[in-house]
Amino acid sequence: MNPHAEPSASLRSLVCSLWNNRQLIGRMGYREIVGRYQGSVIGLLWSVLNPILMLGIYTFVFSVVFQARWGEAQESRGQFAVVLFAGLIVHGLFAEVLNRAPQLVLGNVNYVKKVVFPLEILPVVQLVAAAFHAFISVLVLLGAQWIVNGAVPATALLLPLVAFPLLMLTLGCAWGLASVGVFVRDVGQLVVFATTVLLFLSPVFFPVHALPPMIQPWMQLNPLSFFIEQVRAVLVWGNVPNWSTLALFYLMSLGIAWMGFAWFQKTRKGFADVL
Rank of each mutant, 00 (worst) to 15 (best):
V138L: 14
S47C: 12
S40A: 05
G92L: 01
V34Y: 09
F164T: 13
G87Q: 01
A129I: 04
W19S: 10
P213Y: 07
N110C: 02
N99C: 08
F205T: 05
A81H: 04
M1A: 14
L55F: 02
I33M: 09
I147H: 04
G71Q: 06
V191F: 03
G35V: 11
A257P: 02
S253R: 03
N50E: 12
E96H: 10
I52C: 14
P241A: 06
V192G: 10
L55A: 13
V97R: 00
N242F: 08
A174V: 09
A194C: 11
V125T: 08
F264D: 06
V124M: 00
W243P: 03
V240Q: 13
A178N: 01
R36D: 01
L18G: 08
G143R: 02
L198A: 15
V187M: 06
L44C: 00
H133Q: 15
F94E: 09
W237D: 13
V162Y: 00
I136E: 04
V112I: 15
T196N: 15
M168A: 15
L44K: 02
V15L: 15
L157T: 10
G35W: 10
L201F: 15
E6R: 13
F261I: 09
L254G: 14
V182G: 07
V184N: 07
P160T: 06
A73T: 14
V64C: 10
S179V: 08
G150A: 03
L275E: 04
A233F: 06
A131D: 09
V128A: 11
T267E: 08
V116L: 13
V15H: 08
L55G: 00
E120L: 03
I33R: 02
N108I: 04
Q230S: 10
R31Q: 13
V208H: 01
L142G: 03
L53M: 13
L166P: 03
T267V: 07
F183P: 07
Q220M: 14
A262Q: 09
V152P: 12
W218M: 14
M28S: 07
G181S: 08
W70Y: 03
A247H: 01
I121L: 01
L119G: 07
L84C: 04
V109A: 13
L211A: 12
V116D: 11
L254T: 10
L254S: 11
P217E: 05
V112T: 09
F205K: 02
F62A: 07
R69C: 05
F193E: 00
G56Q: 01
R185G: 05
R27I: 13
L158F: 11
L84F: 00
V83L: 12
N149F: 12
N50C: 02
P213N: 12
Q126T: 14
S137C: 08
F164Q: 09
F117H: 04
L55V: 02
G255K: 00
F193Y: 11
M219N: 08
L141E: 05
T196P: 01
S8E: 14
F206D: 05
L211E: 01
S40I: 05
P51A: 10
L199P: 05
L248K: 04
L53Q: 00
V116P: 04
Q23G: 03
L158A: 12
P123A: 06
T245C: 04
I57E: 05
T195W: 03
V148P: 07
S137F: 07
P213V: 12
R12P: 00
P3C: 08
G87D: 02
P223Y: 03
V82I: 15
H133V: 05
C16L: 13
L24W: 07
V240R: 12
L84H: 01
W175S: 10
A272F: 09
